[in-house]
């Protein structure tokens, strides 16, 4: 049995919790995010005939990334950076969070998820920004937690990166 710790990072209200809500086994209330700053969920997937248990540390999103507790990132085998396509500033937060996460996780693999693809008409994040980040080597997926687009793929892709 392979078990991996994954952290989910992002600014406030980017949809981190929504992304995992329908796919995870959760016994803890979301109030933990606002009390101790993290809520832990579990997701089991099978990848290349191998069962993998992902322990998802859904960290409390705050626009002030300085409030993030890096301790929660330690030991993570990978992480999902989540940004809101309709709020360009969430990309900036994601970039800052990535720096912190890279240090805490010793450059563990990560994916940037730009959520809320169902609201493309109000998007603020431009294709140029996305392209620039891709040029920096970032893996980027555009998802919609609301309409369940590319969510499962995001977890599978990150797991693939971690196991390889």
């Amino acid at each position: 049995m392979i078990k991996k710790k994954i952290a989910m990072l992002g600014a406030f209200a980017v949809g981190k919790t929504s992304l995992v809500q329908q796919y995870v086994n959760s016994i803890f209330s979301e109030k933990y995010q606002t009390t101790i700053g993290v809520k832990i969920d579990q997701k089991k997937i099978t990848l290349n005939d191998q069962d993998v248990t992902l322990m998802l540390w859904d960290l409390y999103g705050d626009d002030d990334f300085m409030k993030m507790k890096p301790t929660y990132l330690m030991g993570s085998s990978g992480y999902l950076l989540v940004a809101d396509g309709t709020r360009s500033e969430t990309i900036d937060v994601a970039i800052e969070l990535q720096k912190m996460a890279a240090e805490a996780t010793h450059n563990a693999p990560f994916i940037l998820i730009i959520n809320k693809s169902d609201l493309t008409e109000t998007w603020e994040i431009t294709a140029e920004t996305i392209q620039k980040l891709q040029q920096m080597g970032w893996n980027i997926l555009i998802t919609s937690a609301k309409e369940n687009i590319m969510v499962e793929d995001a977890f599978r892709h990150l797991t693939q990166l971690m196991i390889l």
Binding site: K3, K5, Y32, I36, G37, V38, I40, Q42, M55, K69
Partner: peptide, 13 residues
């Protein structure tokens, strides 16, 4: 699994 992780989180907290 969840209890173990949460226990660790609480410890870290």
């Amino acid at each position: 699994d969840l209890i173990s992780s949460m226990l660790t989180a609480i410890r870290d907290f």
